[in-house]
Amino acid sequence: MDKREAIGSWLSGPREASEQAGVDFGYRGEQLGLPETGPGSVARPGRRIGALVVDWGMSVLIASQLITQSYDQTTSNWALLVFFVMSVLTVGTIGFTPGKRLFGVRVVELGTGRVNPWRGLLRTVLLCLVVPALVWDRDGRGLHDRISRTVEVRI
């Protein structure tokens, strides 16, 4: 054995050990049968958070200007209601909210590739509870997506 081979195998040891142990998790969405990149792949967290910020901003704007006529403590409650109604109506029918459309994200059901209104309602209720959305699996899906059997994909 050459000295260079011995040193090279020692330097790259941890990586080879992890490959031998079978620690390859694959890419996000592989277990779901989705492509690794491009349209139909799992949307990255940056796109999803950006879409959420746009949708929440729209909800606050609508609640503060059209409903309460000012910004006070009740505005956030009204904004949550506006967000809820907007999400149920848009995700349950066309698969995306205005923010999701702006960021190129769509919500689809795993089996059919689209979302029916009942799954959209369940997903939105869990999303508005916040905690299920903060628990993610290795595919990047929140608990609200896992329970409603949906996934956010790139358009």
Rank of each mutant, 00 (worst) to 15 (best):
G113Q: 00
G92Y: 04
L102R: 04
L81T: 12
T93P: 05
V105M: 08
G92C: 08
T75H: 04
V108Q: 10
L102S: 07
S76M: 13
T97S: 09
R101H: 10
K100N: 04
V91T: 13
W78E: 01
T93H: 06
V91H: 09
A79Q: 07
T93C: 04
L80G: 14
V91N: 11
F83Y: 15
R114S: 13
T74Q: 13
G95T: 11
V85D: 09
G111E: 14
T75L: 05
A79F: 08
W78Y: 12
G111K: 14
L81M: 11
S87H: 15
V105A: 10
K100T: 01
R106T: 11
M86G: 04
P98Q: 03
R101P: 00
W78I: 03
G92N: 06
V85I: 15
V85M: 09
G113S: 01
F103E: 04
T93N: 11
V88N: 07
W78A: 03
K100V: 03
S76E: 14
V91E: 15
G95Y: 06
T90F: 09
T75S: 13
V105G: 08
S87T: 12
T97N: 02
V105K: 04
I94V: 15
G104W: 00
G92D: 09
Q73S: 15
G95N: 06
V108G: 03
F83S: 13
F84E: 08
T74M: 11
W78V: 11
V107R: 07
F83V: 02
N77I: 12
T97M: 01
M86C: 06
T74F: 12
G113R: 01
T90M: 15
G111M: 09
W78F: 14
R101E: 06
K100F: 01
T90A: 09
A79M: 10
R106W: 05
G104Q: 02
M86S: 08
G92P: 02
D72C: 00
T112K: 11
S87W: 09
I94E: 02
Q73C: 00
G99V: 05
V107L: 13
E109K: 13
G111N: 14
W78G: 00
R106A: 05
V108N: 06
L89T: 09
V85Q: 03
F103L: 15
T90L: 15
D72F: 06
V107S: 07
L80E: 04
R114A: 13
L80Q: 12
E109D: 15
T90I: 04
I94C: 06
F103G: 05
V91A: 10
M86D: 10
L110A: 05
V91D: 08
P98A: 01
D72M: 03
F103N: 07
G92E: 10
G111H: 11
L81S: 13
N77K: 10
E109S: 15
P98D: 01
T75C: 09
F83N: 12
Q73K: 08
G99I: 06
M86V: 14
T75V: 15
R101K: 14
G113P: 00
R114W: 11
L102K: 07
T97V: 06
